[in-house]
Design a protein around this nucleic acid. Structure first.
Length: 505
RNA sequence: GGUCCUGUGGCCGAGUGGUUAGGCAGAGCUCUGCAAAAGCUUCCACACCAGUUCGAAUCUGGUCGGGACCUCCA
């Protein structure tokens, strides 16, 4: 079997993945900022890195997956006026930050659950790690890579770059930026600015009393800068150097660049060996984001309540839609594309269920009748599952292979060809690998919710009545049963062998 | 303006220098009381120009188009 290779943003090429500690992987992924409801664009990184987590586990690694919750900073609820945050009025009239944080954290967890994303091993919050962040900032100040100004602390990017470039670790190494170019292109220095240099970034921000989220620090009351939380938490839970750091491409600069600088100063080693970045979801070619006013919230997708949506889409449809594209490619959203994904997923999933219902072990198969060419093809298609995943997690190609296996499964089910065309060994392998890869690696699951036992019983009764009607050639009755069930979203199918099956839409 | 990425058939998308991606939609056929489903077959492609090469959607250069990021945003 091939080795796992991942595209490392640091080197801009695919590299063989080797963990620092054999058998173990430490992975840090930038989590959501819980000041608003998650949208479709947010779904991608968390599904992408869920796949990374799942596949590493499939390969036998023990994974510590850390994904933070950004709940510090100055927040406003979506749609609420900015005046809230500077209100000096009664406590209950003010926006209580933890209300927001709790509300959107709950919503986020609900969405992750809908997508069948596995829970991270640790989900630390920024507000829960203020102490660690302060300690880290103090260390950076002691080493003279940061300075205090008006109760805020800034990282001295130029000094860092001068010193660390000599070690081959210039500021900008991840995003491919050259600091001097940036300084040149952003010349106009603001006199009122506390920063010595335009490229410097905040480690700690001074916050006046009217600011509703603030903590005491050696530099006065304030709140931590955005970048330091990830450095503090990844170091605490994964060590000074860990294996994988993930996130959306839009975080590469400045967020991840700054993390590298901070952590490198504190820990004397670059934080992560492999930096993985997923591409954006676009809508009519534009990144989905607040500033573009083209956001589709997850709740709107699930309900279909949005002008751009022709219908509601399930979380699994969205997961499948995302997995049909390699994670480093941009993915363009449209209602039509999602609709196509929905139909494709249904077809794939039904074939998987059919396959799992085969009692292959009990089958008597004639080894003489095996179609060698087909048998080899099936084995090849299955063997490539790992090869494609190993090639930078190409879920799109794995799914394409699965779709090539669908006709093989269906034609055996419908007796278009006998099960003998495949050897028993191949059939068992097919059953086993399809199950593991769809459910465990790709994380797809049936969307039937609740207990359908009684409903299934009722359907059996109706099917029995319909069979009797068909025997009488009473097609009016048999069609009525089928058509009326259809209006309820239950599809009856007459199978080749005279039985009837049903699916819920 | 700077840095980087990208342009594939009606739609979404994969892609290695030479061979079918795959899904959805379309067409035909088989099966069927009729459907649905399924199976088989099939149409449609690589932005443009030039170069490298025996051969390029895949490499190089140019043109045009699209996108991301460019530091306090969260």
């Amino acid at each position: 079997m091939s080795q796992l290779k991942v595209y490392n943003s640091l080197s801009r090429q695919k590299e063989v993945f080797e963990s620092i500690t054999p058998g173990h992987v430490g992975m840090y992924v930038c989590g959501p900022t819980v000041s608003g409801e998650s949208h479709l664009g947010h779904a991608r990184p968390f599904i992408t890195f869920d796949i990374v987590n799942r596949y590493l586990k499939y390969l036998g690694y023990k994974v510590r997956y850390v994904r933070n919750i950004t709940d510090a900073g100055h927040f406003e609820e979506e749609g609420r006026e900015a005046e809230d945050k500077i209100s000096k009025k009664a406590v209950l009239e003010k926006l209580e930050p933890m209300e927001l944080v709790q509300k959107y954290t709950n919503l986020f967890h609900w969405a992750m659950n809908q997508f069948n994303n596995e829970e991270p091993s640790i989900e630390p919050t920024a507000t829960g790690h203020i102490v660690e962040q302060i300690v880290m900032i103090e260390k950076i100040i002691d080493d003279e890579y940061a300075y205090v100004a008006n109760g805020s602390v800034y990282f001295d990017v130029e000094k860092y770059n001068d010193d660390f470039s000599k070690l081959g670790l210039p500021y900008g190494m991840l995003s491919g930026r050259v600091l001097d170019d940036q300084l040149d292109s952003t010349r106009e220095l603001d006199n009122q600015d506390e920063k010595r240099n335009k490229a410097d970034f905040a480690l700690w921000k001074n916050a006046p009393p009217e600011h509703i989220m603030r903590w005491k620090s050696p530099w006065g009351y304030g709140f931590p800068g955005w970048h330091i939380e990830c450095s503090a938490m990844s170091t605490k839970y994964l060590g000074k150097q860990f294996d994988i750091h993930g996130g959306g491409m839009d975080l590469q600069f400045p967020h991840h660049e700054c993390e590298i600088a901070q952590s490198t100063v504190c820990n004397h080693v670059t934080p992560a060996r492999y930096w993985l970045h997923n591409n954006m979801i676009t809508i009519n070619g534009k990144k989905m984001g607040k500033s573009y006013n083209n956001v589709i919230k997850l709740s709107e997708l699930f309900s279909g309540n949005h002008p751009l949506l022709s219908q509601a889409f399930s979380a699994m449809t969205i997961r499948f839609f995302i997995l049909q594209t390699q994670y480093r490619s941009p993915l363009d959203f449209s209602s039509d594309a999602l609709h196509a994904a929905e139909k494709g997923l249904k077809r794939l999933w039904e074939a998987c269920e059919v396959l799992q219902n085969f009692s292959i072990a009990d089958w008597e198969l004639d080894a003489e009748k095996v179609d060698k060419e087909l048998d080899e093809k099936v084995n090849r298609l299955l063997g490539e599952f790992e090869d494609f995943m190993n090639d930078d997690l190409n879920t799109a190609k794995v799914l394409a292979n699965m779709f090539e296996l669908v006709p093989v499964i269906n034609s055996i089910k419908d007796k278009h060809q006998p099960a003998d065309v495949l050897s028993k060994q191949t059939l068992l392998l097919l059953q086993q690998k399809m199950k593991i890869f769809t459910e465990e690696v790709l994380g797809l699951k049936s969307e039937l919710s609740g207990d359908h036992t009684k409903l299934n019983g009722v359907l059996e009764v109706l099917i029995d009545l319909r069979k009797q009607a068909k025997v009488r050639k009473d097609y009016v009755t048999s069609d009525a049963i089928r058509n009326q069930l259809l209006t309820l979203g239950i599809v009856l199918k007459d199978e080749k062998n005279g039985s009837m099956s049903y699916t819920y839409n």
